[in-house]
Nucleic acid binder design. Structure first.
Lengths: 107, 107
DNA sequence: AAACTATTTGGTTATTTTGCCAATCAGCAA
DNA sequence: TTGCTGATTGGCAAAATAACCAAATAGTTT
């Protein structure tokens, strides 16, 4: 794998890594239904607002979400909607895992 | 977010986290073209074979790939092909990022 | 059985990530 | 200006990841 190819995979990994956290997945799922301010997300997630803010900045740095300040609040929304395609496939993996698990128990 | 919902997002994050590494993304991309043995992947990635083996076990534990031993070699293949849908979207994010970057420079 | 090959596992160290608290910043209201 | 609210930033300790080497395992060949 040459240096150029390596960089390409690093760039891709950076995007996926940004999604690889329960709270951040939740945020993406929620934003798929429309924009939300930080305080709404904090209420739903139940973590410190600084924690939620940092999760959002991870998503923003990766280019997955964008923000807009209106008055006191900052609203976040998805920047690239295709992100949602991910969920269906992840669900497929989980279903397959569940099936394997019950098959293994059957043995 | 109740405990049950939290667990669901944790399960999803586990799958995505398994993909969130350059070498593991490369492996998935490569496996999309057919099964490969560990030594082939090691040659392509250029890391220690123990490192590659551990990456593969991360993907396997997540239920994304499966392995089969034939003779001395262990072959890995994708277990859930829809994983590949991810790449297209990740690419979209990267293209959008590149566009934003050049727009910012233009300012 | 002994030597050899392909892979996995254990252990160590370095690095990254996470989550909270405290402090700061930005916008609005009194 | 002063205070209040929403959000971000800096800093720290705990936890999770990553890569390598060395050792162990499994299967082949001689």
């Amino acid at each position: 794998m040459d240096a150029r190819t390596k960089q390409e995979y690093q760039a891709r990994a950076r995007v996926i890594k940004a999604m690889a956290h329960p709270s951040r997945l939740f945020i993406l799922d929620e934003l798929s239904r429309g924009e939300r301010c930080v305080c709404e997300l904090r209420d739903m997630i139940g973590a410190d607002i600084s924690t939620v803010s940092k999760h959002l900045s991870v998503l923003k740095d990766a280019g997955i979400v964008e923000d807009e300040k209106r008055g006191l609040q900052v609203f976040y929304r998805l920047r690239v909607p295709c992100i949602l395609n991910f969920f269906g496939c992840v669900e497929d993996v989980l279903v397959a895992n569940a099936r394997r698990l019950s098959a293994d128990i059957g043995k």
